[in-house]
Each structure stands twice: as structure tokens, then as C-alpha cells.
Amino acid sequence: MDDPPARMRSLYDVIPRTTTSPPQGRGLLPRWAKAWRLAAAGLGLLALLHGTLKDSDDYFPFGSMAQYATAHNLDGQTRSTYILAETESGDEVRVPLNATGTGIGRAEVEGQLGRFIEDPSLMQVIADAFRQLHPDRDQYTHMYLKRSVYQLRDGYVVGDPETELLAEWEVVR
């Protein structure tokens, strides 16, 4: 694996930018190259601290590591959202809320749940996305945004889940 001759290497390989030493030796950095690297690392850490203290993942990629950070109450409720649909052939199916099914994940629907409840026509967007991703599959005619609610008591699940209907939408073709 000999190196190619210099003229065959790309311009970007030949022109040294941050290091002037040949690839054989120690590639020590000049002073300014060290300085900007230290400054960049410091700024990155500050940005992470900012996102964390603001408790917001809006500042991606320096947002708060907030997945699963909420301490759920041992006597509280656990909710899970889903969409049911009636299809053209009369079946009732669960709408695949994931990357390959509709492109929209369950957590994304939950992240915008207020919008869906306020404006159920947003479910049309999901029906349309499904139609474009899977034109040969059984298409949706009516959609129900639902939520299962599990009651906890001292950390144990008690009873069967209750189902709430949050919104519904007649799909337009």
C-alpha cells in the first residue's frame, strides 16, 4: 500500500492546512489551530449546558438529553396514543405510526397531539402519506385518534386500560 505520487493526490490532500509536518512524523498543531479547537470545545460544552438547563430539545444537537427524563408518578396514569382506521375494504386496522409505514412516528403524533386534537384534518396528511408510500395497500377511509390510559397504583398496573377517542377524520380522496 504505497502512497500514490503527489500529483495523483487531490489538492485537498497535498495542501497542508493545520499541520505542516509530513504524514510520517508528529503532527503537532500551531498555536492558533490549538486555540480555535479549545474554543470550539468550550462553546460546545456551553451550548449543551444551555440546552440542558433550559430543559428543551429544541436546541438540537445541543438540546437536553430529555428522553425518558420525566419521573412518572407511581400512582399516576400511563398513556399511549394510536390511530385506528377503517379501510376501503371495510377492515379496521391500526395505522402504522413509524418510519416505513406512514413516515410519522407515534412519538411525533404525541409531540404534536394538541395540533391533531385542535385540527383533525392533519390526519389527512397521514392518510395521504400512506397512500403515496403504499399505493397498492388497502387505503384509509375514516381515522380515529385514540389513547389508551393505564392506571397505576404504587407502581402496579391496576385494571384494564381505558380508551379515549381524541379526534376523528373522514378521509378525503
Binding site: 449543551l48 440542558t52 425518558y68 427524563a69 420525566t70 419521573a71 412518572h72 400511563t78 397505576l152
Partner: peptide, 25 residues
Amino acid sequence: GAAVAKWVRNGAPFAWGNSAVLTWA
């Protein structure tokens, strides 16, 4: 950062440990 996020969100550094978060998940 995930540990600090749990502290910030729940108001105490170790409140998360006694919660029902895994049950929820």
C-alpha cells in the same frame, strides 16, 4: 447530560430513581 436533564426536569437530583418511568416505558 441525561442524568442532569432528569434533575432539571424533576426538581431533585434523585427523584427519578423512585418513579414509575420504566413501567411507563
